[in-house]
């Protein structure tokens, strides 16, 4: 019975999962594959941002800074001889640790102040990356970063990551892991306290939530995932530079997040796919593309403030209302 109920409730998600797992059979075009891989990768980063911004209500603009820290971490540790599978969690932890240190001073401020002080930190990361030449290679960055180290599986043997299919399953696995953790987190008591902080910090404080600790924790976890995404990015792209930590990336994710739908789990993923795909379609418009993109941004944020997920929610609500009314009308007629 439990299985049937599970299937009935979650059939849609299971279908999506099966679809995701079978995707390599459907896509044979390397270009489309590349976009899907990057979409998964940026979904992870955007989900991280979603935790601090969407659920906790603190607009961190240092996200690309932490993505960059993760990327440089993996690049340097792998160049130092470590396996990808050691370098990646280590780098994500470093990003989380620096996030903790930066969160202590910056999270004392609120709203726009917090946004701007984190933005300043993000800019500092990319300036340091550009100028600490001995460590980071300066503006040329680090090139020739190896692909993820092959893993040895029982029965299957050694699995390398040269092919796009392998790379896809790699990022998909991390994306599912991220989604799983985020799902558990936001539906836990802790997640509720994050949302309480977002909705009314003073009220949350007065009912006994340690709001500062809550904010720090959310910030640290968010930056862990930013670092994780950055680490995978470095290994897949093979070359990083200070632009890997640039504010433009933060802006991109912010747009993915808000247009996809903040404070939902599907929203960041939808945004991370829909917007890059749209931009690829608009390539033929050449330089006019960005003008249209900018205008679209303003229109969407004004008329669909809760993004795609908000619009979907509204639609569902309307459909439900319609049926309810119909039912009501029938009931009235019968009565």
């Amino acid at each position: 019975m439990a299985v049937i109920r599970f299937l009935r409730d979650k059939w849609f998600y299971l279908l999506l999962l099966v679809l995701a797992l079978c995707l390599p059979l459907l896509i044979t075009n390397r270009y489309h594959f590349q976009i899907v891989i990057m979409g998964c990768l940026f979904s992870i980063a955007t989900l991280g941002m979603n935790l601090i911004l969407g659920y906790t209500g603190q607009a961190s603009l240092a996200h690309a800074g932490f993505f960059g820290i993760g990327a440089y971490g993996v690049a340097l540790l792998m160049k130092g001889g470590l396996s990808f599978w050691v370098a990646l969690p280590l780098s994500a932890l470093i990003a989380a640790g620096i996030g903790f240190l930066i969160g202590l001073p910056t999270l004392r401020s609120r709203g726009s102040y917090f946004a701007i002080s984190t933005m300043c930190f993000g800019v500092i990361v990319s300036i340091v990356a550009g100028n600490w030449i001995d460590l980071t290679g300066g503006y040329n960055g680090i090139v020739g970063i190896a692909l993820p180290t092959p893993i040895h599986l029982p029965l299957i043997g050694s699995v390398g990551f040269q092919t796009q299919v392998a790379q896809y399953y790699l990022v998909l696995a991390f994306l599912l892991l991220t989604l799983f953790i985020m799902h558990r987190l936001v539906h836990s008591l802790l997640g509720l306290s994050f949302m309480a902080i977002r909705n009314n910090e003073a009220l949350a404080g007065s009912v006994g939530i340690n709001t500062f600790a809550g904010k720090i924790l959310s910030f640290v976890v968010a930056n862990f995932f930013a670092g994780l995404a950055g680490g995978i990015y470095a290994s897949l792209m093979g070359a990083i530079s200070p632009s890997t930590a640039s504010l433009d990336l933060t802006f991109n994710w912010l747009i993915f997040l808000l247009l996809g739908g903040a404070a939902t789990l599907a929203g960041p993923v939808i945004g991370a796919f829909v917007i890059p795909v749209t931009m690829e379609y608009l390539q033929s418009l050449a330089e006019y593309r960005l003008i249209i993109f900018g205008a679209l941004l303003i229109v969407v944020i004004i008329y669909f403030p809760r993004g795609v997920m908000g619009a979907v929610g509204n639609l569902r609500q309307k459909v439900r209302d319609f049926y309810d009314r119909k039912k009501g009308a029938k009931g009235a007629a019968a009565g």
């Binding site: 911004l53 709203g111 726009s112 946004a115 960005l290 900018g294 941004l297 303003i298 944020i301 004004i302």
Partner: peptide
């Protein structure tokens, strides 16, 4: 929320610069 005006501003920036 402020962050929405922020996105809107980013849109305006992109339009002006481009």
């Amino acid at each position: 929320p402020h962050i929405n005006s922020f996105i809107s501003a980013v849109g305006a920036m992109i339009i002006l610069e481009t």
